[in-house]
Every structure is written in structure tokens, then in C-alpha cells.
Design a binder for these strands. Structure first.
Lengths: 135, 135
DNA sequence: GTTCTAAATCTACAGATGTAGAGATGTCAC
DNA sequence: GTGACATCTCTACATCTGTAGATTTAGAAC
């Protein structure tokens, strides 16, 4: 737990998703991969990627005149970072209102609800196995 | 469908929460209210608030030499904006993985799980009453 | 009216972000 | 070694964000 869960900008999300798909990869590949959706030039992509390396979101390894990039945070970590941000600021850390808002705002099929149901059930078993951590 | 759900920075969250608490209110009150936690000067608070007015997050009404501020987005809207951002970028719009991550990452008591349970049940009833499609 | 003061206005600046052009350099093919 | 091409490096600039000092103004108190 060194890095304190990142929050990414939209541009950074686009880049890191491409990197997750392509890694290890060079900047030109990422640029090509994103070109249809983002229309960014090589320079733009490269600048973003280097700034992300500086921030610890990507790692770069230089081989000859080629720079290979890799993600330095996992998808899980990035997802969690975003969730935590919302949880902390929009909901003052209270999980239930957050889930409530989520459930209320999205259209969910009965099947979706079933799946959520089983997530909760699974969770319940876990807690049973490992009784209340602390209180 | 007026404002397309906002995303707020940390500073903006601090301000708008104060405004929700105090509105209608003048900038000095907000500054005082936040001083213990944020330690911002009046200038800082005022600048932030005026920028938020420009963005449509707050509204301002000038009375004599006093400017009264109000929130221009509801707590719900702001919360949803944050959730929508996470949902869209971190989870590509897929709700279930998002809830799953949330449940997996937070420590939840049996009581919490019960509450989530009843949220889902309530949701299920709604869907039943108003079968799929519009809402 | 002069002073005090609360509130406002104006201006500024550093750092982050989005975006990209221009030029340098390494590599391969002859 | 000369080109052609791929890739990199450097620099730039506008906008947004966090932060705040300096100056001005409107109203209150004498």
C-alpha cells in the first residue's frame, strides 16, 4: 500500500485503458490505438504518458531508442481510487447512501438485482467466516 | 436536462457543502464556517465561489453591497455527477462491477448488509410495480 | 465629515492539464 | 553515406485550479 489510490482525469483514463490493453507498448501504438476515438497527435499522447510516468501511473523502460510503457497501477486500484473519491467527498464516507443513490439512479433488471443479491450473500458468508474485525 | 451533472474538485466540494448548510449566505460566513477545516482566507473562498457561480454550481444575488450565494445544484445532482464519472470512466458504464468493487473493498457489518439487502428488495418491488422500460 | 470596518473588487502567480508543432536522432535499405 | 522513415526530445501556450495580497468602497459610529 504505497501509492494512495489515484484519481484519473478523463484523458488519463483513456491512456491507461489503452496501456492495459496493449502493454508493454510504445507511445506510437497507444496513439494509433486511440486515434479513432480521441484524435490525439503523437505529441499529445506522448506528453500525457510521460506526465503519467512522473505521477506513478505508468512506468517506462527505455530500450535503445524505444520507450516501453506499462501500467503502474492495476485496473482495480484505479477503479478504487475513483470510488473512494466519490465516497469521501460526495457521501462523506457513508457507503449506504452511495449504494442507495446508485440503485435509485440506474435502471436495473431483475437479473441485475439477483446478481447484487448474491454479492451481498457472498459478503455475508465472508463476514461470518471472519467475525467482526474490530469495533 | 439542464446542467449535465457536475463533477467537483475537492475545494469545490468543501465550498458547496458549506453553502448547502448555510444558504442563503454571504462569502464571509462561508469563510468562517470553513476556517477551522480549510484555513482559507476570505479572498480564496471568494474566488472559488465566484468561479463556481461562473460554472453554474452556485448562484449569486447582489443586495446592496452584499452578495448572497445559494447552491445551484442539489446534493443529489452533485452526488450523481461524481458517481456518473466513476461509472463511466472506471467501469465503462457497467454498474455491477462497480457495486461489486465497492462491496469488496469496504468493511461492512452484518447490519450494513441487511440495509443493503432491503434497498435491493425495495428496488425489486419498484421494478415489479413498474415493469421494465421508462421510469 | 472623519474614522473605522466589513465586504467587495482587482490583480497575480504557481502548478496542473490539454494540446501540439518543430526539430533532432536513430535505423534500415540500398 | 544518403535517404526515408520511425521515434523521440524540447518547447510552447491556453485554460483551469489553488491560493491570496492589495486596494477600494459602502455603511456605522462618533
Amino acid at each position: 500500500m504505497s501509492t494512495p489510490l489515484p484519481e484519473l482525469t478523463e484523458a488519463e483514463w483513456a491512456i491507461i485503458k489503452a496501456v492495459w490493453d496493449l502493454e508493454p507498448c510504445a507511445a506510437p501504438s497507444v496513439q494509433e490505438h486511440l486515434h479513432p476515438s480521441m484524435n490525439w497527435t503523437y505529441s499529445t499522447v506522448r506528453t500525457l504518458m510521460d506526465r503519467m510516468v512522473a505521477k506513478g501511473l505508468l512506468s517506462a523502460e527505455k530500450i535503445r531508442n524505444l520507450t516501453l510503457y506499462r501500467a503502474a497501477v492495476t485496473r482495480q486500484q484505479a477503479q478504487l481510487g475513483e470510488l473512494r473519491y466519490a465516497l469521501k467527498h460526495a457521501f462523506d464516507g457513508a457507503l449506504k447512501p452511495m449504494v442507495e443513490t446508485l440503485l435509485a439512479s440506474e435502471k436495473l433488471s431483475a437479473a441485475d438485482l439477483d446478481e447484487l443479491q448474491s454479492l451481498i450473500d457472498a459478503r455475508r458468508k465472508d463476514s461470518a467466516r471472519q467475525p467482526k474485525s474490530k469495533r
